[in-house]
Simulated scan of single mutants.
Amino acid sequence: MAPDRAVAGQARPEQEFFCFRAGELRLAVPSENVLEVIRTGLLTPLPRTPSFLLGVTGHRGEVLPVMDLLRFLGKGEARVGARTRLFIGTSGNYRVGVVADAVLGLRRIPVADILPPPLGGDAAVEHLLGVYGGNSPQDAIALVNFTKLLQSARQRAVVR
């Protein structure tokens, strides 16, 4: 007797994540925080903004700040080129373009398989929901708490 699909789904809850690569990091944000993925367009730099804000870009009649997640997390800096993509991230009323070197797609991750963020170390850990190990260490994906990350980025930008 195989269990009913509805029962099997309840027994092992999953969460959907948008997975991408930024530099050497494999990252993911909850899919409900991602509106769409676009090509990187014209970026207009802004004076006196934190280094993680690369500038602004126009998208569907809206001016969006563009964020370098690597700089924000202190893990290097993004190289914006022809193959670079932006994902439009949202939290509440706020929207931002985030630089992604490669889009890895959507992935359903069992909640029970999400490991807690590593203890100690760098400040980037405070913005993680956890880590998904995958099948090998190369498959590990850091799961970003996008709402908290966006709040921290706004606070850092306003303080300046």
Rank of each mutant, 00 (worst) to 15 (best):
D4S: 07
A6L: 06
A6P: 06
V7N: 05
V7K: 11
G9E: 07
G9S: 07
G9C: 06
G9H: 05
Q10T: 06
Q10L: 12
A11Q: 11
E14Q: 12
E14H: 10
Q15G: 15
Q15P: 14
F18K: 00
F18T: 00
C19F: 04
R21F: 07
R21I: 10
L25A: 12
L25C: 10
V29M: 08
V29N: 08
E32R: 13
N33L: 08
N33C: 13
V34N: 02
E36H: 12
V37F: 02
V37L: 03
I38N: 03
T40N: 04
L42E: 07
L42C: 07
P45S: 14
P45R: 11
L46P: 06
L46M: 09
P47F: 09
T49E: 02
P50R: 12
L53D: 08
T57R: 02
T57G: 03
G58W: 01
H59V: 14
E62D: 13
L64W: 02
L64A: 04
V66C: 08
L69G: 02
L69S: 01
R71S: 15
F72M: 05
F72G: 05
L73R: 07
L73W: 04
G74W: 00
K75H: 10
G76E: 08
E77F: 12
A78Q: 05
A78F: 04
V80W: 03
V80S: 00
V80H: 01
V80Y: 01
I88D: 01
G89A: 12
S91C: 10
S91Y: 08
G92Y: 03
G92W: 02
N93C: 13
Y94C: 11
R95K: 15
V99W: 01
V99I: 05
A100W: 07
A102I: 09
L104V: 08
L104M: 12
L104F: 05
L106V: 00
R108C: 13
I109G: 08
I109M: 12
P116Q: 08
P116N: 09
P117I: 14
P117G: 13
P117V: 11
G120Y: 00
G120I: 03
G121I: 06
D122G: 13
D122Y: 05
H127N: 00
L129R: 06
G130R: 11
V131K: 01
Y132H: 14
G134R: 04
S136I: 03
P137L: 08
Q138R: 05
A140D: 11
V144N: 03
Q151H: 15
R154Y: 04
Q155L: 04
V158A: 07
V159Y: 08
R160F: 07
